[in-house]
Structures are given as C-alpha cells and as structure tokens.
Simulated assay, not measured.
Amino acid sequence: MILHTSKCFADFLFLKPFFMPTQAPPNALLYASFIEEAYSVYENNPNDINPSLAAYGDFLNGYTLMYNLQMKDFFIDEKPYAYYGFIARNIATNEVIVAIRGTADATEWWDDFHFSLIPFYQGWGKVEEGFYDIYKTLKLVVPSTGESVMLLSDTITNDSWLQGTPAATLTITGHSLGASLATLYAASWAYNSPTPLQNTAIYTYASPKVGDSSFADQYNHFVTTGYRIYNKPDIVPHFPLNPLYEAVGTGYEVDSWNKAARSIPCFHALTTYMYMLGANASILGKCALS
C-alpha cells in the first residue's frame, strides 16, 4: 500500500503545488475510457493475458484491435507477464491509440520501487529505475495467435507493427503506473524525432513523477501535446517526494474532495477521474460520495 503511516499524508498536505491550472484537455474523458476498458477486460478474466476481440464487447466498435499489451507487472519479483492494455486503430480516422492500465489495486505497486534515478538510455536525463525496468518489458502480442511481435519500445524505430498503414495520429494514454510508462513511451518517441512530435498526443491520469529536471525539461520541449491530469487530493502525482524528481508539463487539476468518497484509493481511482471529467455519477460505484 502506498501509505505506511499518517505522516506521509501529512507531508503531502503541506506540499507546495507543482502545477498551474489549465483549460480542460480536449477528449480527456474519451481517452480515459480506453484505459478503463483495459481495466475491465483484465478484471473480467485476470488469467487471460491475451484476450480476444470478444473480450472487449461493443467498446471497440469502429476500431480494429491491433495488439494486446503484456508486461511484467512486478519486475523486481520476476513475475510472469500479465495483460496491461491494448493498441487499437480507429477505422474512420486511422488514429492509433495505445492504452496502458495501472495495477488492479491502484497503489499496490508502490512498495516495489525505491525511487533510484538512473540514466534514460532511450531519452534524456534520468528516470525512476523501477518504471524504466518495467517499461522495457512491455510487448505487443497478436490477439488471435498469441504471437509476440516486438517490445513496445521497438515500435519507435520499426514500423512493421503498423501493418502497412501508417498512423494518421498516435495517442498514448495511461493511468497511475500506466501513466508513468506512457510518459516514457512518449519521451522515447520524442527523443528519436529531430523536431517536436507532430500528430502525437499523450494523456496521463494520476501519474507519479517519472524523472529528473533534465528529463522533464526536454520532455516539455519535444512533447508538445501532452496532458497530465491529476486529482488534487490524490497523493500519487506528488510522489516521489525527492526534490530531484520533477513532474512533466503543465498539469490539469480536478478536485474530487466534495464530489466522491474521501479515501486514498478513491482519490486515485480512474473512475473518480472520469467522473470529474464529465462521466455519469454511476461510474463511481463504491467511490460514490455517501
């Protein structure tokens, strides 16, 4: 669990904000729904690491399911690969969407990281070691055959994964741990581009800080369409507390304090974020304000 004592929460309450308010990101609720679908597919059958198109129900109507995403969710413990999201293509617009969920228990992964900064060899500056190690395990798997195609990081320099049709636009989206991985993926794309990214957007929800100031500065320069969305009482976006870490970009704040249940898991839940972005209150479930 993310908190071991009440002291961490007290420290969080007295933090100076690291954000500036901005206009609500366009389509933020839409892109959150892709991550929520990945959570739903996983929760319906946690043992299915390569779900079929049928597992997504009607959600992907109008989309082609290109790949499932698998990764080692606890790299330090060398656990087996698990399902962590998907890549889909919009049939009408040719937009490719990469959606990465967090863990089933929104904060269970926190204890596995010691927040050591190491060089980011696929980008700039230094990044959190645990996030980077996990990022390097993410791979694309063909839903129908289970064939492992390539690592997600290899898609940046090898376009065969696009199946002969280049993406008109690329949207990368992730929540919690998935947001950290989405940030590293976007940074890897930007690092391999001689100019700021074009036709690429990243939406993150409840992302912790990923790297140091050098990483953040270069990311902010080259990733020109990035939206870091965070809930004011959610403590995860403020971690690690180490001052060497810096959040990327300008964040967009929502505040569920008087709108949803007041608990650490509910502050962090993607469904709370979605409600604050305009989803119906029924999405809150156990996080509804009683």
Rank of each mutant, 00 (worst) to 15 (best):
Y83F: 14
N199C: 07
V141Q: 03
G278N: 11
K136E: 13
S188P: 09
L181R: 04
A167K: 02
D105Q: 13
A182F: 02
S153W: 05
L170Q: 10
H114N: 14
P143R: 15
I97F: 03
D58E: 09
S214C: 07
P46Q: 11
Q23P: 01
A55H: 10
T169G: 09
V236F: 02
S160T: 14
S40L: 12
S214G: 11
A288C: 05
T22M: 14
V127Y: 02
E253Q: 14
S153E: 10
S176Q: 11
T22D: 08
Y39V: 15
T93Y: 00
I2N: 07
T171K: 13
E147L: 03
S188L: 00
Y84P: 05
L29H: 10
L241E: 09
S176W: 06
R228G: 10
A104C: 01
Y39G: 14
A179C: 11
W161V: 04
S116C: 07
E43Q: 14
T272W: 09
V141I: 08
T200K: 10
P25S: 02
L152T: 04
T103V: 02
L284M: 05
L152R: 09
N280V: 07
A99L: 03
G123W: 00
A99I: 06
N258G: 11
N231H: 02
F113M: 15
A168V: 08
S180M: 00
T93E: 08
F75D: 13
L151Y: 09
E108A: 14
S144D: 13
Y56P: 03
P196N: 10
Y67R: 08
P26N: 11
V96L: 07
N258A: 14
V223S: 06
T169A: 08
Y81N: 15
A261T: 04
Y39N: 15
V141H: 00
F75M: 08
F267K: 12
G178F: 01
G125T: 03
N220E: 13
F215E: 13
W257L: 15
D77F: 04
S256L: 07
L60Y: 03
E129Q: 14
Y227V: 04
L277D: 07
Y67C: 11
I35Y: 01
N44P: 14
D154Q: 12
G130F: 00
D217G: 07
M71W: 04
I91N: 14
V96H: 02
L289Y: 04
A247W: 00
A28V: 05
A206N: 07
Y227H: 15
I229W: 02
G249N: 06
P119V: 04
A182P: 05
A216M: 03
A104T: 12
T107W: 00
Q163E: 15
I235S: 14
F59R: 15
A260Y: 06
L284H: 02
K232C: 05
L177W: 01
T169H: 01
Q70Y: 04
P208V: 01
W124H: 12
S263G: 09
Y81H: 12
H175S: 10
K7H: 08
G85E: 06
M71Q: 10
M66R: 11
S6I: 01
K286D: 10
C8L: 06
F120E: 12
I91S: 13
Q70N: 13
C8I: 06
I35F: 00
L69I: 15
E36L: 12
Y132N: 13
S290P: 01
S6L: 03
E246C: 05
S160I: 08
I134S: 15
C266R: 08
